[in-house]
Amino acid sequence: MSEAAVPLLETSGLTKIFGRLTALRSQSITVRTGEIVGVIGPNGSGKSTFFNCVTGFLRPNAGEVRLSGQPIQNLPPMKIARLGIARTFQGTRLFAGLTVRENVRAAAQLRHPSSMLDAVLGTPRLRAVEDKVDAMTAELLGLVDLHRQADRRAGDLPYGDQRRLELVRALATGPRLLMLDEPAAGMDAAETRRLLELISDIRHRYKLGVIVVEHDMDLIMNLCDRIQVLAAGETVFEGTPAAVQAHPRVREVYLGHE
């Protein structure tokens, strides 16, 4: 099989059961590099369970998660992050007591490590790595207009800025797949618009596949190439934004709530 034919992310038969509740039932999704796929559904439909199974925070009861063909469903979160999946959370999970810059730097270590020996000796290698990390940090903070806040404590930023910082912190790990959990929550219309432009921009700039879980239908419909609709852990429908909007059952299970 040629490289391009292997999808970036592929889940098949993904099932997660909590006690008597089947949170996710035989879910399958395919995401290719450069694609933005939306996952929508009412609360409790399995979106977060899906995220947690892919990023290693939950172990599925059945099914497979493959990243570029490699099964990853039994790996711990740290290994999965190293293989190239980055995510953000509903509500932020920043290193609140660290500065904005340190948040990005802590994540940038993954692709730009320097050893203790380098640090002790102050080797030229250390200098080179630090220059690279500095340049990357400046670029990423520039993307979200946070470069002037670089030395502020992350926990002191306004909420919208915290969300954007979390997004670039995820990017700093050098991912192939970026998973965004309700990135527009708590943002106003103008901020959501900027977020939309940012996400479309970075998928090309950093050659990413993107999965977005979001309740903001405006964002989802304008951003995504494809949308998967979940309800009670099952995939109800999958298709283009136009097809999703036209589908009667989708209107019933989800859009009807809007």
Binding site: F57, P77, F95, G97, T173
Partner: peptide, 25 residues
């Protein structure tokens, strides 16, 4: 001043998030 020290401070703030950015907690 070191990567590892920064990682340690990050893990002290939020261990799960530290895992998630690939730090070896």
């Amino acid at each position: 001043r070191t990567d590892m020290g920064l990682g340690m401070r990050a893990a002290a703030e939020d261990m799960q998030a530290a895992n998630l950015v690939g730090l070896d907690v």
